[in-house]
Computed example of a mutant assay.
Amino acid sequence: MLVNQLLSMKSDSGKPGVAGTTIATVKPSDTVADAVRLLSELRIGAVVVSSDGKRPEGILSERDVVRQLGQKGAAVLDSPISELMTREVQTCTLSEDALIILDRMTKGRFRHLPVVDQDGAMLGVVSIGDAVSGRLKELAAEKEALTGMIMGN
């Protein structure tokens, strides 16, 4: 399964108001509180940080926020996102294999990956949950095909 297939399956995610191609972005100058509101409202685990809404400059996850809340307290909510975001954002393309990106996310211990085109413009975001769900669907289809072959269907 390829990343483009994962993105197309996201429209069935069941998250209210969140289409498969929705890219939740915040500006580096927005406050952490702004990002937390968006994470809560959309029921997602990370937002892409982008000044223009097209190219990723960073990513901010709920883990990043919780880690800083634990270290600095509630005052961190007034900080600009640029102080907390992960600046070295890993990305993937539509043609990459879902198993490969699943392995990258697992080894890198991150759960969200912006999908970009050849010019670096964002097309979507896939999560580790999207990759796992895609793999499970793939395995179920393989099982069904093998069962059909064995049963002579």
Results as ranks from 00 to 15, higher is better:
residue 99 L to Y: 00
residue 67 R to M: 12
residue 17 G to K: 04
residue 66 V to T: 08
residue 36 V to F: 02
residue 34 D to M: 14
residue 41 E to S: 15
residue 41 E to N: 15
residue 89 V to H: 02
residue 130 D to A: 04
residue 30 D to N: 09
residue 90 Q to N: 06
residue 110 F to M: 04
residue 29 S to L: 15
residue 16 P to R: 05
residue 35 A to K: 09
residue 138 E to I: 00
residue 68 Q to S: 11
residue 11 S to G: 15
residue 103 D to P: 00
residue 83 E to T: 11
residue 104 R to Q: 06
residue 61 S to K: 11
residue 67 R to E: 11
residue 86 T to F: 14
residue 16 P to I: 03
residue 63 R to K: 10
residue 125 V to F: 06
residue 102 L to F: 01
residue 143 K to N: 14
residue 15 K to H: 14
residue 151 M to Y: 07
residue 61 S to A: 11
residue 86 T to M: 11
residue 123 L to Y: 04
residue 103 D to I: 03
residue 66 V to P: 03
residue 126 V to R: 10
residue 38 L to Y: 11
residue 92 C to I: 09
residue 135 R to M: 13
residue 58 G to E: 01
residue 97 D to A: 02
residue 69 L to G: 01
residue 8 S to I: 12
residue 56 P to M: 01
residue 106 T to C: 00
residue 29 S to P: 15
residue 16 P to W: 04
residue 12 D to A: 10
residue 105 M to S: 13
residue 18 V to L: 10
residue 20 G to K: 07
residue 35 A to P: 02
residue 1 M to V: 00
residue 88 E to R: 14
residue 93 T to H: 14
residue 81 I to W: 00
residue 108 G to T: 00
residue 103 D to W: 00
residue 40 S to E: 14
residue 93 T to F: 10
residue 148 G to H: 09
residue 119 D to W: 13
residue 26 V to W: 12
residue 2 L to E: 13
residue 104 R to V: 07
residue 114 P to Y: 03
residue 62 E to G: 06
residue 121 A to K: 14
residue 134 G to S: 04
residue 150 I to A: 13
residue 80 P to F: 07
residue 78 D to Y: 03
residue 28 P to S: 09
residue 80 P to K: 12
residue 58 G to A: 09
residue 41 E to L: 08
residue 78 D to T: 09
residue 89 V to C: 01
residue 151 M to F: 13
residue 110 F to S: 00
residue 47 V to N: 11
residue 63 R to I: 02
residue 126 V to S: 05
residue 149 M to Q: 15
residue 27 K to I: 06
residue 40 S to W: 14
residue 47 V to R: 07
residue 30 D to R: 10
residue 136 L to Q: 07
residue 103 D to Y: 04
residue 97 D to Y: 03
residue 22 T to N: 09
residue 153 N to W: 12
residue 127 S to D: 13
residue 68 Q to L: 11
residue 37 R to L: 03
residue 132 V to L: 09
residue 70 G to Y: 11
residue 73 G to F: 06
residue 146 L to Q: 09
residue 54 K to G: 05
residue 141 A to S: 05
residue 115 V to P: 01
residue 148 G to S: 12
residue 15 K to A: 03
residue 121 A to G: 04
residue 79 S to G: 04
residue 47 V to F: 10
residue 103 D to T: 13
residue 138 E to K: 05
residue 4 N to I: 11
residue 8 S to P: 02
residue 87 R to V: 05
residue 82 S to F: 14
residue 71 Q to F: 09
residue 47 V to H: 15
residue 7 L to R: 06
